[in-house]
């Protein structure tokens, strides 16, 4: 599934940011990244999600998903297999909860046949039925995180059941689910 070479992450000026062991992710595995503040957890996960921050670290070409280097993945094909939830959100708009969760279907434009059913399932699973029509800006911090988790969950649930999927979440506390 995913292979990360035992090569340190470097800045463009070749200063080492993060030294890493060789990592193999297999299907069905769930990994937890722990460490003290500033250890580089977020940096590592951001790069695993394929986001090369232009001002900090050049993305290693030796990070492979399904045998293909991360930078070689096309935006949309990659979004159909990998969902990424960052720590902080920039969303300040009064969009409805349903509209925010529906954004998870963006990589699947055109494949709307299963969307209604999948969406109903996601709302139930994440206990969001009561919030469905609420405005995003009126939610509490915990509720907002649950909505964003549901959005990334929808993104991956819409994929074919046998296709490989990678779910990366940077969260402080996992919400209780039904």
């Amino acid at each position: 599934m995913m292979h990360i070479a035992a090569q340190p992450l470097c800045r463009p000026d070749s200063q080492v940011v993060l030294a890493l062991p060789e990592i193999h992710l297999q299907a069905g595995e769930c990994w937890l990244v722990l460490g003290p503040n500033g250890a580089g957890k977020s940096t590592f996960l951001r790069h695993a999600a394929g986001q090369s921050a232009a001002n900090s670290v050049a993305l290693a070409d030796q990070w492979l998903w399904q045998g293909k280097p991360l930078p070689k993945w096309h935006d949309n094909a990659w979004a159909q297999q990998r969902a990424y939830l960052p720590q902080q959100h920039q969303l300040r708009s009064a969009l409805s909860v349903e509209a925010v969760v529906r954004m998870g279907a963006f990589p699947w434009q055109g494949v709307h046949a299963r969307l209604a059913d999948t969406l109903a399932g996601i709302f139930e699973e994440w206990d969001l039925q009561q919030l469905r029509h609420r405005a995003w800006t009126t939610l509490s911090g915990g509720e907002q995180q649950r909505v964003q988790l549901a959005r990334t969950a929808l993104q991956l649930t819409l994929a074919e059941p046998d296709s490989p999927r990678l779910w990366i979440c940077l969260i402080k506390q996992w919400p209780s689910r039904r």
Partner: peptide, 12 residues
Amino acid sequence: LLGEREAGHLGL
């Protein structure tokens, strides 16, 4: 509105 990076993560 999600932010540019997150929009990118959704394939935009």
